[in-house]
Design a protein around this nucleic acid. Structure first.
Length: 445
DNA sequence: TCTGGGGTCCTAGGACCC
DNA sequence: TCTGGGGTCCTAGGACCC
């Protein structure tokens, strides 16, 4: 917590719906709901007119239609939202170079790095007022709620206090007085599950939370969360405003209007998602080592399976192959509601020509015996959990990847198209232990 | 017509290595 | 021939946020 109120939090009001109302005057003053419009959609944003009918974000769209049949239901135009967001972030960066976007419609600004005569409540309030005026100018009339305080936590709480279109500054020294009467659910990180745990020990408000010892909190909600709650209940928060954060994962997922059972269809959908996700990876000049498949079944149970490769990849076919293999481990016979493919353990883009070398250098996996020139070659006897199959790069013009993983011990066999030479196309892979999984580059089209 | 999509962080258990 | 503790990596699931 700082001595002066130098952290500002901005939150655009009903952002997606407000952009729609801005661009379509006929929607102004009317209930607007932006979100999934399909059978299984949920509400992303409801305009304040729609909120009056009890519609709110995360509500199933079907329920929103029941509550407010006359609302305009829109799928959303993310290009327009991104464009408006970009203008807002630009405006904020004009105030201070230290701007941390949290999403398209929310950001922290560190006013300690702003050009201000001083950081008194009067000064930062004046800045807040001017920001709100300029915000409307650069967005074409959108309003925002602004909170200013001595920490991220307090600034965020402040912006919630007078929504929409408000400005609240919490003066230094007032933090705990403001917090104490509030429900614990105002604390970021306290969702339904934590709130229920706290309710069971008689805690509903921040004042009651303050009474609980650190040991007790850790017992109830776990170590990291417990420590965090203990501090936030006392308004202790020293998190800095961090302008650039590196992505840790990239993923794509889709919920289908009807559950899918057909294996071939599922495989095709996974392939398409692998292609999408690697496209985004390449665009970001990143590659990743861990592929995760997410499957939500007909009963809404959600399962993930992941596999970590010995080296990073951004190759569609490799990711598709891994994802297919992971899919094959799950029983989908009851129907699949959602599929997703994600990549994590990201690293910076590596130049193509350096890639092979660095992969080989990084790979301390056993290289085992080289591929011999038999139609069926014994490539590796696995005593380890994973092995990289180095002979495979001959079949793949880009990275040359092929992996075996699992917890068994066995012999992996590779069949080549051309008997005489391993430079032929790989026809199949097989392991003699079902606990071993084999991934080869798929045949070229 | 119950329950999106894109993320982050944490936990717990097991493998593996020294 | 009995048994350990720490550290790291990996995996699966869950809570949470916007």
């Amino acid at each position: 917590m700082r001595a002066e109120p130098t952290i500002l939090h901005v939150d655009l009001d009903a952002f997606f719906a407000a952009v729609e109302q801005r661009d379509k005057p006929s929607l102004r003053g009317k209930p607007v709901v932006v979100g999934g419009v399909g059978g299984r959609g949920v509400v992303a944003t409801a305009s304040y007119e729609a909120r009056a009918f009890g519609v709110h974000s995360a509500m199933p769209t079907a329920e929103a239609r029941r509550r407010c049949p006359n609302a305009a239901f829109l799928a959303g135009r993310f290009g327009a939202y991104r464009e408006t967001s970009r203008a807002v972030m630009e405006l904020l960066r004009g105030i201070s170079p230290l701007v941390e976007p949290l999403s398209l419609d929310e950001a922290f600004v560190d006013l300690a790095a702003a050009d201000l005569p001083d950081h008194s409540v009067a000064s930062v309030s004046a800045l807040g007022r001017e920001l709100r005026v300029r915000m409307q100018e650069v967005t074409g009339g959108l309003t925002a709620s602004v909170g200013i305080g001595t920490s991220k936590f307090i600034a965020k709480i402040a912006s919630e206090l007078d929504k929409p279109d408000g400005l609240v500054v919490i003066a230094p020294g007032m933090e705990r007085d403001v917090l104490r009467p509030m429900q614990v659910t105002v604390i970021p990180g306290v969702g339904p599950a934590t709130a229920e745990h706290l309710r069971r020990i008689g805690v509903h408000t921040v004042a009651e939370l303050e009474e609980i010892s650190l040991e007790e909190l850790i017992r109830v909600v776990g170590k990291a969360h417990g420590r965090n709650l203990y501090q936030l209940a006392r308004a202790q928060d020293d998190r800095p405003v961090v302008p650039e954060r590196e992505a840790k994962s990239i993923s794509v997922e889709d919920t289908y209007d009807t559950d899918h059972v057909d294996r071939r269809l599922l495989v095709a959908l996974v392939d398409r998602q692998a292609s999408k996700v690697t496209g985004r990876l390449r665009k970001a000049r990143l590659s990743g080592r861990t592929v995760t498949l997410k499957v939500r079944l007909h009963d809404f149970s959600t399962h993930t399976r992941s596999a970590t490769l010995p080296g990073p990849t951004d190759d569609t076919r490799t990711v598709a192959r891994v994802a297919r293999t992971l899919l094959s481990e799950l029983d989908t016979s009851g129907g699949v509601r959602l599929l997703g493919v994600g990549i994590s353990a990201l690293t910076d883009w590596i130049q193509d020509d350096l890639f092979l070398d660095s992969t080989a250098a990084d790979s301390e996996e056993p290289t085992d015996e080289p591929v011999d020139e038999e139609t069926t070659s014994t490539l590796a006897t696995l005593g380890r959990r994973r092995a990289w199959l180095p002979g495979l790069d001959v079949t793949h013009d880009e990275h040359g990847e092929g992996w075996v993983w699992g917890s068994g011990r066995g012999v992996v066999t590779v069949r080549f198209e051309t008997a005489a030479s391993p430079t032929g196309r790989v026809l199949s892979f097989a392991a003699d232990d079902p606990a071993l999984h084999v991934v080869a580059p798929p045949p070229e089209e």
